[in-house]
Design a protein around this nucleic acid. Structure first.
Lengths: 220, 220
DNA sequence: AAAATATTGATATAAAAATATCGATATGAT
DNA sequence: ATCATATCGATATTTTTATATCAATATTTT
């Protein structure tokens, strides 16, 4: 069994989910600061740009391993590089996308993924009208060819944009194709084996938070 | 100043963000259970459907005000109704959408919003090629007409899908149009006055979590 | 060179969220 | 009718996350 000491150390070293969520935000403002020619930035400045508290910034950045200088702040280029390293935005995250409907097509055309090191290398659909065409320059293949094409291209991530009814089935094909993680944009609760990582993207959640917050702020 | 007692009571009554995030998920599986003819469901069953622990379910559901029966569980229809009431998915959330590009168009065509009580009543763009057409049955108006049209239709929510460069500017127009909350799909950190609610939807965050989780699971 | 100051980062505290424990109770079994 | 059991919900505990405090230090000012 772990000693108390071991457990404390581990929990101190592990990067936390809320921190991970904020890292891409730091990255964006840092890139913007960098392109405007700035070299250093303080936790105070970053905090005000993200509407959070400076202490949160310092705690978050500590996880990347950066060391700031008192009275100067953090080196922007160094920080960008460390954050990119922390969230794997440097090494290419290769992905397959399944379901070239409205949302799937939009994601195929989303420029922001390049900045996040995500490369959608192939897309799949069951609709014969879509297969063997391209959408935003990405080839659409018949879904049944996924395992075969995966064995050549070795994708890491499966982006799931199919309707709920077929979500589990398509997820299973992704898993059989050797994908390591599924980014689930369908509103289906998926079952995946323990070695496959599942990240649910739920628009309903964001809308619910917004909706409740508006309700509260309108009658305080 | 608040007494300790007051503060404790308030913090116990206030619904928490993680709970709000899960409510739409409960709703979806409950609707599915309901349509398969079931009347009652236990916290254990809900938990296994969502891959969370039963105790989390019971705590979450307590916020909706439901009361379950020992050995039986919760009434599904009652629970659906209480959750919808809690997250305002019953009353209509009327919305304007700005930016009919890839993502904006996809959201205009997203059927899931109906289930969440969100009604996009008009969309706006600066591109003259898009304005005065419809996308997925929604009319696209010139951006400059937003304040005028808002004064007639009184939208609650502004869905922001414009490029980063113009995001703050368009957000300001939304705010001037009397919108109560902004659902920000751009990757810009926005400044909004305190009476306007801001909900950021950040794909980078989800990708970062996925990416780090995959990395960890592949070398444990 | 010394003093003043801004900023980091370590340590401590508080608040929020998840988890554990268990008594109370409604139902089904005996 | 009584007993056994599944399930809820109250209370307690632990873990995670956010926040506060302040000593250490690099820079600027005097």
């Amino acid at each position: 069994m772990d000693s108390i000491q071991t457990r404390i150390e581990r929990s101190n070293n592990m990067i936390k989910i809320p921190t991970i969520r904020r890292l891409p935000r730091y990255l964006r403002v840092l890139q913007s600061l960098s392109s405007s020619g700035r070299e250093f930035v303080s936790s105070e400045t970053l905090a005000s740009l993200l509407n959070i508290k400076p202490i949160v910034v310092r705690k978050d950045l500590a996880f990347t391993g950066i060391s700031g200088k008192p009275r100067v702040g953090y080196s922007i280029t160094h920080l960008i590089s460390l954050i990119e390293g922390t969230i794997n935005f440097k090494g290419k995250n290769t992905a397959f996308l399944a379901g070239a409907g409205n949302l799937g097509s939009a994601l195929l055309g989303y420029n922001g993924f390049a900045r996040h090191g995500l490369d959608i290398i192939a897309a799949f659909d069951v609709d014969p009208q879509k297969t063997d065409t391209t959408i935003h320059g990405k080839s659409i293949y018949p879904l049944e060819r996924m395992p075969e094409i995966a064995s050549r291209l070795n994708p890491y991530i499966g982006i799931l944009c199919v309707p709920e009814e077929s979500a589990q089935q398509v997820a299973d094909i992704m898993i059989a194709s050797g994908i390591k993680g599924i980014w689930n944009f369908s509103n289906k609760e998926l079952n995946v084996p323990p070695d496959v990582v599942l990240q649910n993207e739920d628009l309903g959640a964001g809308l619910a938070i917004l909706s409740i917050a508006i309700e509260k702020s309108s009658r305080p």
